[in-house]
Computed example of a mutant assay.
Amino acid sequence: MRYLLLALTLLALASSARAQPPDWGTAHQIDVHLTNFHFTPDRLEMRHGEAYRLHLINDASGGHNFDASQFFAAAQIAPSDQAKIRKGSVELKGGETVDIRLVAPAAGTYKLHCSHFLHSSFGMTGEIAVQ
């Protein structure tokens, strides 16, 4: 009986530790510049389960977006930033910056592109690699 109580206590402690929100103050910041027609960098590297602040900067005068629908669907997005993502995409007007706080999802490679007309064809593509 003692072992059962000990096991249940440890299980409860482990699940409560996972339920705590990330410390956004210590999140890794990744700056991504959107220009005509590139992402810089065009390959983002993250570690599963770590907190990040994705700092998107549109250096162009026209609009672009950061479309990574599978990545955003799998990541844990900060509740206050969820409304900035619509259908897996973050829209940025010319000169605009947007921050998205998230916890990196499961390991894998996620595609990234700008879904504006012909922007992907002109090379505005990339990937997010999670280890």
Rank of each mutant, 00 (worst) to 15 (best):
M46E: 03
V130G: 05
A78H: 14
A12N: 06
E50S: 04
M124Y: 06
A51Q: 07
R86K: 14
G62M: 08
A68I: 01
L102C: 06
R47A: 12
T40R: 14
L8A: 15
S15N: 05
Q131I: 07
A51L: 01
R43L: 12
I85V: 03
V32F: 14
A12L: 09
A73N: 13
F39L: 11
Q70M: 01
L44F: 06
A27C: 02
I100H: 02
F37G: 11
W24P: 06
Q20R: 14
I85T: 03
G126I: 05
L13H: 04
R47E: 13
D81G: 08
G123H: 09
S61D: 15
E96W: 03
T26F: 00
H64W: 02
S61Q: 15
H38G: 01
I100G: 02
P105C: 08
R47N: 10
R18S: 13
A19P: 07
A7N: 04
A74C: 01
V103R: 10
D42C: 05
D31T: 04
N36W: 09
K84C: 02
G49V: 01
D31N: 15
T109S: 14
M124F: 05
A78T: 10
Q82A: 15
H33Q: 15
Q76S: 09
E91G: 08
K87G: 15
M46W: 08
L44R: 00
Q82P: 00
H38A: 11
E96M: 01
T35R: 11
R53F: 05
W24I: 11
Q70P: 00
I85P: 03
L10P: 00
F117N: 13
D67N: 13
T26P: 01
N58R: 01
V32N: 07
F72L: 03
I77N: 02
E91H: 09
A78M: 03
F117I: 11
V98M: 10
L8Y: 03
T35G: 11
Q131D: 13
T40F: 01
F66S: 05
A107T: 08
R43F: 04
D23Y: 05
D67F: 10
G108T: 09
H48V: 11
A17R: 03
Y110S: 00
S16N: 13
